[in-house]
Amino acid sequence: METLTKMQLFERLRRGENPGRTIFSPILMHFAARHIGRTYGEFAADHKVLVEANLKALKDFDMDMVSLISDPYRETAAFGAGIEFIPEGVPRCLNNVIKTAADIEKLEIPDVYQHERTLDRIRGAEAYRRALNDEVPVIGWIEGPLAEACDLAGVSDMLMMLMMDPEASELLMDKCMEMAKTFARAQLEAGCHIIGMGDAVCSQIDAGTYENFVRDRQKEIVAYIHSLGGLVKLHICGNITHLLPAIREVNADIVDLDWQVGISEAHKILGNDVIICGNINPVTVQDLPADKVHELCRDLVMSQQNQKFILSAGCEITVNTPPENLVAMRKACQ
């Protein structure tokens, strides 16, 4: 019997052919670090730890993809923010780079090869390429235009800027979009096949604001990545039901769905070409016994048999999730 590589499995799914089983690709960060006895701080600060942790998880849980996701502040650091690494927590951003409209004017797109945090992720992509030889899909990671603007200006201030000063908001997000394209290109060149674009804050804005400020920028980033031969996974955690019609126009190849979003409705709105990735509640994966997690995942997998679907939790697998629950998720894919 022919043994397919994980890349070939994914290609089959993309083409709409039956890959033989459901693809399994949970988002791992803190969990993966703990799994190899390292801290989240080390995972975020050093690509060697991040890659080692993901490769171990790839092997132990028979995952079908690996990722470079770590924290929101790679680009923000390159833009000039101070970052503090916390041993068992998300890195902290120590200052808002954007405090006034004048700061936006002055903001320059950094060289991703010159700043240690962006370069570290690029090095991670290179390490995956060496280790996996293009046989496993590698997901790079960038911040979406609104997420990065919020990282630079602060969430509340940025969301109010959208209302009060649309022109300044547009300028800032244009710069964030350029940064996203530059960083995506570097990761693709270093060995990534897919670029994850995290724009989580979008679930907190209305459809009109998303359409006015965010959708077309995300779309431009996606088109750029496609022009370079890469694919895009759009990640907006939280309830995005109200955004789905606009998200369809972004043309992402994979859309992550959190547990609050109805998966059937999403398929209907996003169409048959989009691969949906989700959408078990990560708290449920953490709290239920393994047999219940298996049951839940198996029911979801069965309901998605003729759909383009990847099994994952709606967002990051929590650090306290028992490893046997991930094994149960993978088992449900068979």
Binding site: M160, L162, M163, Q204, I205, D206, T209
Partner: peptide
């Protein structure tokens, strides 16, 4: 009721 989202609430609060 999801008729408004965070930016609108922030403006109201201001």
């Amino acid at each position: 009721e999801n008729q408004v989202f965070v930016p609108q609430v922030l403006m109201s609060a201001k």
